[in-house]
Design a protein around this nucleic acid. Sequence first.
DNA 1: GCCCAGGGGGCTC
DNA 2: GAGCCCCATGGG
Length: 223
Amino acid sequence: MSDKRRRTLLDIYHRLLASFGPQHWWPGEEPFEVIVGAILTQSTAWSNVEKSITSLKKVGALSPAAIRRLSREELGGLIHSCGYYNMKALKLKAFAGWLGDKYGDSLEKMFAGEAADLREALLGVHGVGEETADSILLYAGGKPVFVIDAYTRRICDRLGFKPKGNKYSHYQKLFTDNLPPDVRLFNEYHALFVALGKSHCLKSQPLCQGCCLAELCQKKEMR
DNA sequence: GCCCAGGGGGCTC
DNA sequence: GAGCCCCATGGG
């Protein structure tokens, strides 16, 4: 492992933290709510997801049993605001069914095993891909798994770092090979990438002058 | 009015 | 296994 790369990745983290501040993603939320959020936020702004979670809470539907009990149409109506509601209703029902069958609705049991094994199992659930599985492991399960999203990829690319191969696992390896497996670090780091991704900085190529990472962008330290 | 967001599945070749 | 298309609302 390269010390220089490790220092650069920590440097990026601290620059983002100083610039955007702690993001406080999902602090102290119920794990099941976090999982529902992870599915509902697929290709969707978080503000839309919040409305759907509020709707689910209001009718007491934020539980695996309630999600199984509701019809796809009823569930779709409750999560209408977050878009793709028909698909996402099926995805929520698939996860709730799987959780009931395999773990008797106990997230504690689900998270008890090895993270790598659980990741494989989650990927077999309809509607759970790599990013969603990793979000569940990190934000709901407190496992040190680094989440890669479209923003993270774009930021890495802008910084002059493109892993060989363009796959999720290649980007993820960059972080997990060069950072300590610290849940709070991984949690905050991903959230900070999203904060930067949403800012105007990422819209310019390379990152705009005012960006806290502009200097690194010019030096291309991540190569 | 037009564009895209904190993806994933299914299909084709 | 890479390349498309589909899903769909809400905010800029």
